[in-house]
Amino acid sequence: MVTDDVDESKDRSSAGVGLIDVPGLVMRVRRACDLSQRELGAAVGLDQSQVARIESSRRRVDLPLLAGILALADYRIAILDSHGLEVMPVPEDVLRDNVGRRMPAHLDVRPLSDRPTSALLDAHADRPSPRAWYHHRARRDRRRAGRGSDGVPDQPTTSGLARLERDRGADRRRAVQERAGALLDSDCACHDECWTRGRCDDTCTCRCE
């Protein structure tokens, strides 16, 4: 979709920092793909005159159309921060509240396992258990200050928490396997209670763990 005409007196040389040189990018795509204006237009649903007006800064281009043109050359639009690093959007699977709404984007969401002290002191037995927690700004700022200069943390996601739990499970299995391997190489005389407790009890003379 092409939107209304822009001021024809405004040419490409007036583009400043933060503005996208759309005409230059469209011509870059045509050059990379060896496309005429007519061929590029046919690929994205425009006629040749519309492409010509875009390249002469006489038509604005909306973001979906620009993304479609860039995709012809396997280019994509990216948002960069002041250090030139790509800024990623908030993921779709961030933790949500009990009715499926995203948590406040400006606050630091905490998974259910990271229960705040206030939730322990002010429990509400008549309410359903929340799916996540967050602090309001004053308490959030104190919590951030305690972490030092780590920047603004990402909100946790369901996929990220699942991956973390898988990694923890793998670490636990690895530790058990290493301990079992060490026991096979030693003359273990542990009591049955040691295995139940996961460590040697006070009466065990083996002391392998």
Rank of each mutant, 00 (worst) to 15 (best):
A78W: 01
A180L: 14
A162Y: 05
L164D: 15
L161Y: 05
R197E: 12
D81E: 02
A123M: 05
D167Y: 02
A71H: 10
R179W: 06
P153A: 06
N98K: 10
H135T: 00
A145C: 00
L161H: 04
R174W: 14
T196V: 13
H124M: 12
L121C: 07
S82K: 02
R102F: 02
D185F: 07
D171W: 01
A175F: 03
D74I: 00
R131P: 00
G146M: 08
L66W: 10
T203F: 00
A132H: 12
A125W: 12
E165V: 06
D167E: 14
R137I: 05
M88I: 01
L161S: 08
C188Q: 04
T203Y: 01
A67Y: 07
G160M: 09
R168T: 11
C190R: 00
A73H: 08
T203L: 00
S113A: 13
R76F: 03
C190Y: 07
S159T: 14
D108G: 00
V109W: 01
V152Q: 09
A132K: 04
V90H: 03
E178K: 05
D167V: 12
R101T: 01
P111H: 09
L95R: 03
Y134L: 06
H136R: 04
N98Q: 11
N98G: 14
L121M: 10
P89S: 06
T157Q: 13
C188D: 10
L184S: 13
L107S: 06
R101Y: 06
L107R: 15
L66E: 10
L70Q: 08
A78M: 04
G169Q: 14
R102T: 04
Y134C: 07
T117S: 10
W133C: 11
L66G: 09
R144D: 04
R147T: 01
A119H: 12
A105P: 01
S118D: 05
L161F: 05
S186Y: 01
S129K: 09
L70F: 11
P128G: 08
D93F: 11
D192M: 03
D81T: 06
L65G: 08
D187E: 13
R115T: 15
P91H: 14
D108W: 15
R197C: 00
A67H: 07
R76M: 09
V87H: 08
P104M: 03
V99H: 03
I77M: 14
A67N: 11
R179Q: 13
D171N: 12
L121W: 07
Q155L: 14
R96D: 05
T196F: 10
R102H: 06
E193I: 11
D192L: 07
T203R: 10
R101L: 14
R115V: 15
G146P: 01
E92L: 13
Y134P: 01
S186F: 01
P116M: 11
P104I: 09
D201Y: 00
D141S: 07
S129Q: 13
E193T: 12
L121N: 09
A73T: 02
Y134M: 03
Y134T: 03
R139F: 02
H106Q: 08
G181A: 15
